[in-house]
Design a protein around this nucleic acid. Structure first.
Length: 405
DNA sequence: TCTGGGGTCCTAGGACCC
DNA sequence: TCTGGGGTCCTAGGACCC
């Protein structure tokens, strides 16, 4: 039996929440940013989009196209709170809810839509409840799979509702540029263009062997996408994370090792703390560096033992850093922990390690209570920086809830 | 006074082992 | 005398997403 998948996507989520909670911003061109400096637009309100303000634009560009633009530093707590409320609304329609990101969710309503009349009735009701409870708008797309539901959303933003029925899929895809599909970005669409493939219709008709030769495994998926097929499921449970990482663009380019170390300590603590909070340990530690000219590279090291210890992470990235010959100052630093496990057998049972563990737990409790970075190792001063982490890729709960105060 | 930060998945080459 | 081949792990980088 064919499935009925519904995708809900908030319209200009962060900006809408700000306009709702700070009424003087209502109806004005605003943009949500993370910090005051060296940043890009995270979300622009529709009033700002009219002028051409887009996500990813730097502030100066945005101000140029829209001089009256109001910049608002985002508040992650507010968005996470709203997102949790949205999830409760969705769960009133089906237990099969996948919170895909902070502002987007998939619902499998195959077996529940009858209770509300039909799929469109579900969409109308969801939009109404969200408007009523949170005063913000969203777009709902309904289709036979996630790919088409998502497409239905993208084609009808903002404040839209669209049901693409199975029989309509082929017709809609025929002249649709491949770039519109979820999963086909700049690079792949450029390559497809050189192959003479511009529309989804053409993509679907391209022999599998040609796509496989050019793209490998991805070619198989591309062919399916061109035909509007997608058998991925709405996954209710959050999957085990594969990595935990933090990075930051420094307030200015920095060459001084001492200063670099201070930032690395901070990042290591953010990573270690999040791992400990969720009972995860990892054995691959990596350091990411971006030079002022934007060249970005990473170096990683695999260890025999798993760790969640801030100091072990910190020492590892310092070792990696010391193995490098930097050719310039540094613009961005990143630290991440991967190849994760939550298997207690991986926990070393040596006494030393147990003592360390209880020390870490005590420090975490103090930091939980009095604020992050109240207590931390080392003699390096922690830099005062804008530490608002705002990422649309968040989840409202679990490991991917990145709430750093 | 250019260009964020959180992830996932895939590839390709080299080391190493049998 | 000429240079196997399968497998796994590790590393670095790239494409894509929100």
């Amino acid at each position: 039996m064919s499935r009925i998948i519904l995708c809900v996507d908030m319209d200009a989520f962060f900006a809408s929440v700000e306009q709702r909670t700070r009424p003087f911003l209502k109806g004005k061109p605003i943009a949500v940013i993370v910090s005051a400096k060296r940043t890009v637009i995270t979300t622009a309100s529709y009033e700002a989009r009219k002028y051409g303000v887009k996500t990813g634009m730097n502030i100066h560009e945005a101000k140029k196209v829209c001089p009256q633009l109001i910049l608002v530093i985002g508040d992650n707590e507010k968005y996470a709170y709203t997102c949790r409320g949205l999830e409760r609304i969705y769960l009133g329609f089906t237990p099969d809810v996948e919170v895909y990101s902070i502002d987007e969710a998939f619902l499998d309503i195959t077996s529940s839509h009858h209770l509300f009349g039909n799929p469109e009735a579900v969409g109308i009701e969801i939009k109404r409840e969200i408007k009523e409870k949170f005063g913000i708008f969203c777009t709902v797309g309904i289709g036979p799979n996630k790919l088409i539901a998502k497409l239905a959303v993208d084609l009808n933003k903002p404040d839209g509702l669209r049901w693409i029925k199975p029989d309509d899929v082929t017709g809609i895809l025929e002249d649709l540029p491949v770039k519109e599909l979820w999963g086909i970005g700049q690079k792949i669409s450029a390559i497809l263009r050189t192959m003479g493939i511009k529309t989804c219709g053409e993509l679907g008709r391209t022999p599998l062997s040609i796509l496989r030769n050019r793209f490998g495994i991805i070619g198989i998926r591309l062919k399916a996408m061109g035909l509007g097929l997608d058998d991925s499921h709405v996954t209710r449970e959050e999957e085990e994370p594969k990595s935990i990482g933090h990075s930051m663009t420094l307030p200015r380019d920095i060459g001084d090792r001492r200063e670099i170390h201070a930032y690395l300590l901070r990042l290591s603590e953010m990573v270690g703390r999040r791992a400990r909070r969720h009972g995860l340990m990892g054995k691959v530690i990596s350091l990411v560096i971006r030079y002022p000219d934007f060249e970005t590279f990473s170096k990683q090291k695999t260890f025999r033992e798993y760790t969640d210890d801030t100091h072990v992470i910190y020492q590892s990235v310092i070792d990696i850093l010391n193995s490098l010959r930097l050719r310039d100052k540094i613009r961005l630093l990143g630290v991440s922990l991967s190849t994760l496990t939550r298997d207690p057998l991986q926990l070393s049972l040596f006494k030393e390690s147990r003592r360390r563990k209880s020390l870490l737990q005590t420090m975490d409790r103090i930091n939980d209570r009095y604020g992050d970075f109240t207590l931390i190792w080392g003699s390096y001063k922690i830099q005062e920086v804008d530490s608002g982490v705002i990422s649309p890729a968040w989840r409202p709960s679990g490991v991917r809830c990145v709430n750093v105060k």
